[in-house]
């Protein structure tokens, strides 16, 4: 499943896309420890696969939460750590 967590407001659209079918097979789940803002968490999805998601209280503040990593101009730490290439950003 492709899960898009985030929002659109007057300043733009801020979504983190996670391909949960890829991260269900990933045992490392490096994104969780790589994110300096601790935005990622795991949960058992509706089919009992352990998948990664963006924590509920962070979903409406991604522009601010991810600003530090985005400012570096490099590939974000979560994407660098993701072995399955399951994470992408809309901005």
């Amino acid at each position: 499943m492709i899960a898009n967590y985030g929002y659109e407001d007057g300043s733009g659209h801020y979504y983190i896309k996670i391909d949960t079918s890829k991260c269900a097979e990933c045992t490392a789940k490096g994104c969780i420890s790589a994110c300096p803002e601790k935005l990622f968490a795991t949960e058992l999805d509706d089919f009992d696969d352990e998948v990664v998601l963006i924590k509920e209280d962070a979903r409406n503040t991604l522009q601010t939460n991810c600003a530090r990593c985005k400012a570096n101009g490099e590939k974000e730490p979560c994407r660098q750590a993701c072995e399955s290439d399951a994470i992408s950003f809309s901005w």
Partner: peptide, 11 residues
């Protein structure tokens, strides 16, 4: 069965 979703509950 869901293949993708996107939501907006900002406002």
């Amino acid at each position: 069965t869901v293949t993708s979703f996107m939501m907006n509950d900002k406002c």
